[in-house]
Each structure stands twice: as C-alpha cells, then as structure tokens.
Design a protein around this nucleic acid. Sequence first.
DNA 1: TCATTTAATGACTGATAGTCATCAATCGAA
DNA 2: TTCGATTGATGACTATCAGTCATTAAATGA
Lengths: 223, 223
Amino acid sequence: MGINERKEREKEERREEIISAAEKVFFEKGLQIATMDEIAEKAELGKSTLYLYYKSKEDLYLAVLMRGSDILYEMFHEVVSTGEPTMKLISNVGDAYYQFFKQRRNYFRMFHFFENPQIHRQVSEEMMGLCSTNNGRIWTLLVETIQRGMDEGVIQKNLNPMQVAVMLWSNSNSLMRQMDREDNYWKEKMGLDLEATLRLTNSLLLEAIMTDEAKEKYPEFVV
Amino acid sequence: MGINERKEREKEERREEIISAAEKVFFEKGLQIATMDEIAEKAELGKSTLYLYYKSKEDLYLAVLMRGSDILYEMFHEVVSTGEPTMKLISNVGDAYYQFFKQRRNYFRMFHFFENPQIHRQVSEEMMGLCSTNNGRIWTLLVETIQRGMDEGVIQKNLNPMQVAVMLWSNSNSLMRQMDREDNYWKEKMGLDLEATLRLTNSLLLEAIMTDEAKEKYPEFVV
DNA sequence: TCATTTAATGACTGATAGTCATCAATCGAA
DNA sequence: TTCGATTGATGACTATCAGTCATTAAATGA
C-alpha cells in the first residue's frame, strides 16, 4: 500500500509547513498578538485547515516551541559527548545554554510559555505530554552529567544531583530572561553588565558545589 | 472650596473600590481570563466607567499589582530597620521575600507580569512610570543594604552592590516562581524539595559574597 | 463509472476589549 | 429658586479573533 504511505508523508509535510508558517508569525508577534488568520494566510491555507492539524493556537505554539527544545537538546548532547573532564562538561553546558540564548533568541523566548501557567488554558493533554517528554530528555541529560561528577568525586556527594541541576538552570535561566527583557536598561541606567553577572553567579555556584580535591585539580573554576 | 476636595476624595474612594473589585477577579482568574465585564459587575459599575479610571485592563491590573509591591516594600523596610548586624539583615531580606511568597501568593503571582514583555501591549506610559518608581524604591533599599555590608567589611568590596542584589533577587525569584508552578511535581515525581533548594542556593551565594572576616564573625552563615 | 473516504474551506458564532453618544446628577451664578 | 454648565456614569455599539461546522472538492478503488 504505497498510497497510504505517500499520504502519510504528505500529511507530515503539510504539518511541517504549518509549523514553519506559524514559526514566522510567532517569532515576529509572540503568542498573544499572533492570529490564526495570519498564520493561515502565511501557510496559504484556510484557517479551519490549521485546526485539522492542531487543536488550538497554544498547541500550534508548542509545536513550534518543540523545534527549539530539540535544538537545545542537540546542543547539550554535543557538549556532554566531547569526553572532556566532567567538571568542564558541567561548565560547558552552562555556556551552551548561553549560546542558545544568544543564537536562538526566538526559541528562548518561547520557553517562557512554561513559566506562565496562566496562559495554558487551551493546551491539549497530548501536546503537554509531548512537551514533557521533550523537556524530560534535557533534564535527564543534565542530572546524569552532575551525577557523573559526583561519582568521579568532583561534585560534593552530599548534594542531590537534581537539586544542583535545578539550581544551576534556575540561576542561568532567570538572568538570561532578565537580559532578554531589559539588558539595556540595566546597562545604561544602572551601569550593570548582566552578562558579567551571569558569569559571576555561575562561577560562584559552580565553585560552591565542587569538592576540595576538584578545586585543587581544576583551579580554573575557582574565582 | 470644600466641595472640590470632597469630590476629589470620592473619586479616590471609587478608584480604590474599583481596584478592590479588580483584585478579587484578577486573583481568582489571572490577567488573561479575567474580563472587564466581570470586574465591572463586581464593582457594581458599568464597564465604561472602569475606563474613566483606567485606560486598559492591563493598567487596572498594574494598579492592583502596586498594592502588592507596596506591601513588599513595607516588609523589606521593616526588616532592614531592626538594627541587627548587616549580614543578618541581608539574610533576613531573603527570608522576608519568601514570607511574601507564602503569605501573599496572589500578589507574588502578579509580579510575573513584568517577566513577560509580550503582554505589555496595552500598558500606558503613566502607569508604567508609576510602577517603575515603585519598583525603584525596593531596588534602592536592597542595594543600599548591600552597600552598607560592603562599607562595614562583611561583603567583598570588589563586587558591584547592584550586581549582588540582582544575583540574590534573581535566584530567589526564579526558584519561588518554580515552586509556585510545580512544587508538587518536583516533590512527588522527582523527590526534590524546592524550598530546601532555595535555602541552599541562598546560603551558597551569601557565603560566596562574604569576606573572610565576616565568615569568622558570623559562622552561622557558613554552610 | 460512481460511491466512499479524506482533505480543505468559507461562512458563521461567541466572547470580549475598548469607544462614544447620551443621559443624570450636581453645582454655582443670577 | 431657577437654569445653563460641568462632571460622572452608562448602555449600546464596533472590531477583533479563536474556534466550529456544514458543505464542497479531490482522490481512491471497487
């Protein structure tokens, strides 16, 4: 039955076309201001057609967003697969997230969706499940890397690896969010370089979770 | 001219009534789902009347939010006025923010508004100005306290006091935001206590910015 | 050839932010 | 006290937009 396979493929292609059209509009306008009519026009489809593929505007938004989390996962995966010392890997993952922020700003912005539960009214169960799986991969990768650091004795063993992951993520994420919003305000009005602040807090936290042996072995991580 | 003063007073009272009605609705539904019709009904006024007092739903939202930032300012102000050692003050301010989070959850949630610039389309210049002033007071208070810590030699002098303020705020805020969203998820699915994570990161950062003399003098802040 | 399944759509509904012409109450000058 | 003017309040309206549904068009295969 080659016909069914072709149809399946075409359907998948159309789905991707819709995501690409939506991406353009969401990048430009954000979730609130983007309209399904505009996305439909950009996709050269009727608005109703979009609803054959996605149940709501929010679902479609998440479909775009997942392209972003796939990219982030790949970046992290590449970083932790280099075979460098684990302490360096953990530090590099932080740098990679900053790279993602700088290079994929539009996707980074979309991630804010998860930070504002008030928007979630129209998200379908299925889509939320897909996103959870996607995010889970990233968390697993982070936690495993930190666990490895503990096993190798460079990270203090009395800490909870997930706690460390949340701590580092939370800190980076929050400062980058602030940079995205109002970097210029802090720089010009307050004379404060948020990028430097990010580097500083990362260093302080990293140093705080290292073992004494690791500090001797890797003095470059000691402020 | 007692009449004009009475009118002025009545207008101010009505303004407060509107804010109180809006507060109930926004607390219950959040910015997106709350409707001006519902607020008008709760205030026992016509919807159009609301627009005589506030230019948009967002402006009204910010009027409510500012009640929250006034409360937070008062809490911080009380904490830093106790005359305790500055190191203790800085630590207490962190605790106060956590108290605010626990006791004034609804206001804490509203603060998220500032973290999502995509919502801001309808905020008037005036209202944004009022909010900036309000927030400015809080930042000034934080920065001054940290500066005092530096002057007294308990905080490392090579740091930028504003940088330290942003660092501590950003860290607390981010973790509390996460607790608000999905504390149960992390607790039950991941076995992770976010409150403990918050305490840990606060301790680590605080210790990292202290001078060596301060660590000797105040060993309770050393992990 | 034609009935059936599938994909696509335009016209529609319902909800809601924001506007505006009009009305009502209060005020102050004559 | 009277009446024009000012101020406050409102209901009816518009514009916008997410989401629905009956209908149409196209592809399929018996």
